[in-house]
Amino acid sequence: MTIPPKDLLSSSGLVIVDKPAGMTSHDVVGKLRRAFSTRRVGHAGTLDPMATGVLIVGLERGTKFLAHMVASTKSYSATIRLGQATTTDDKEGTRISCADANVLAQLDDAAIHDALTHFRGQIMQRPAKVSAIKINGKRAHERVRAGEDVVIPARPVEIMRFEILEIRRGTDTAVPVEYSDEIPPAPADEVGFIDIDVEVDCSSGTYIRSLARDLGEHLNVGGHLTQLRRTAVGPFTLDDALPLDALEENPVLSLSLDESLIRCYPTLEITEAEAADLAKGQWLQPRKLTGVHAAVAPNGQAIALVKEQGKRLASVFVARPSTL
């Protein structure tokens, strides 16, 4: 009886985590390193501590695939609070302005729905000052905490869907700490707000906090984010995700490395001989393909990501190198 060789990449792949609130993405990586007993763990697409939902984590050789993972679109469910602005554009920051209750009372639902039309399609968005964007090699949020006045230029993003699920109105008796010149203070017993539950489909690089801030500014009442849940990253959704505590108890891959490549890219069937060539870093004859494809051997293994470059079909990422 012939014993099939052990697949050395059986522990490589992706884990799709349903990140809990109150943890950084790095915290999640630390817990999974302990759970899977490996240092080779990385994540793609940082989620703020207050946010929950889909976080893509790579294990072993899956960490190298993260740089090639197709995740051009993301989806979120969120709650935006209109009538109050904060220093961080979310509930973690200090409140800096409140709209008068009478002003909010005059802001009807139709006006809010109409305002959303200005934030659909291709727009220019200014990221939040406390984002992870690097400015001269240092992250913006680190510069802000060091007391620097950070200005991040606006950049193009695309909002494919921005829809309201529910609108709720309420009052808040907490006294604001600071006020801006544009929005004067309101008496403590008249501080109101409008919470809107929304769903957003957007391009990668879009900040939902900034969307909340900009919507509030557009309506002249201020706004910030109070709840955020990422429901999809590219082809991966909450249906693929597992709670972190469940993964700590039973550490299992969500997708093998083969399944990950095939999920993210269109496939190209190749022969065993072609698979051997790609595994060695060699190129194949062109096939008139458009874009990147996952080259899949007859045994179902995804050998490499390939792309036509001139007169050759070359690998851009070798998932299963012959050296393993």
Score class of each variant (00 low, 15 high):
I133D: 00
F162I: 05
V157M: 04
S77F: 08
D214Y: 04
R61T: 03
P176H: 07
A279Q: 03
V41Q: 02
I303E: 11
A276N: 09
A85E: 14
G53I: 02
A232I: 01
D239Y: 06
N220T: 05
T271S: 15
G281N: 03
H118R: 14
P5S: 12
P266W: 08
V15A: 06
R155P: 05
M23S: 09
S315M: 05
A128M: 11
A85G: 15
R312G: 02
G42M: 01
D245E: 14
S72E: 15
G58T: 10
N250S: 14
L228Y: 04
C202I: 09
I152F: 02
K31D: 02
G192W: 10
V15M: 09
V17P: 13
E178G: 00
A110F: 01
V157C: 03
G121I: 08
G223P: 08
L211I: 07
V316Y: 03
A51M: 12
L305F: 06
K19F: 11
H293I: 04
I183A: 10
G53V: 02
L66N: 11
V306G: 05
E190N: 14
A128C: 13
I270P: 10
L261E: 07
K288M: 09
N250T: 14
A99R: 01
A146R: 04
N220V: 00
I303Q: 11
D149K: 15
L116Q: 07
P298K: 11
N220F: 00
S131N: 09
A276Q: 14
P286V: 05
V54G: 04
A276P: 00
T52D: 00
T206L: 03
R209M: 03
D18W: 12
V157T: 00
H26E: 05
T290F: 04
R61I: 00
P321H: 07
G13M: 13
Q84I: 13
R209D: 03
S204H: 07
P4F: 11
Q285C: 11
G58F: 06
E217P: 00
T88H: 11
V177Q: 14
G281W: 09
A21Q: 14
K64P: 01
K129G: 14
R40M: 04
L116W: 11
G62A: 03
P187E: 12
L104I: 02
T38D: 08
A275R: 13
S72Y: 04
V28Y: 12
K74H: 11
R139T: 00
P266E: 09
F36H: 05
R161E: 14
E274R: 10
E272N: 12
I152M: 03
E166A: 10
L242H: 08
G281F: 07
G53Q: 02
S322V: 07
R33A: 02
G42P: 08
G300S: 07
L116H: 06
G30D: 12
T52H: 01
E142A: 15
K307I: 10
N299M: 05
R230S: 10
E269S: 15
V150D: 05
D189S: 15
D114Q: 12
L255P: 00
S256M: 06
P298V: 11
T323S: 14
T24A: 11
A111W: 03
G121D: 05
G205S: 01
V41C: 01
R143S: 04
R320P: 02
I183R: 08
R126C: 06
L107W: 06
E308D: 03
P266V: 08
V17T: 13
S322T: 01
V17F: 13
L32A: 04
H68N: 14
G310R: 05
G205T: 01
D27V: 05
R209F: 07
S72A: 15
D240P: 01
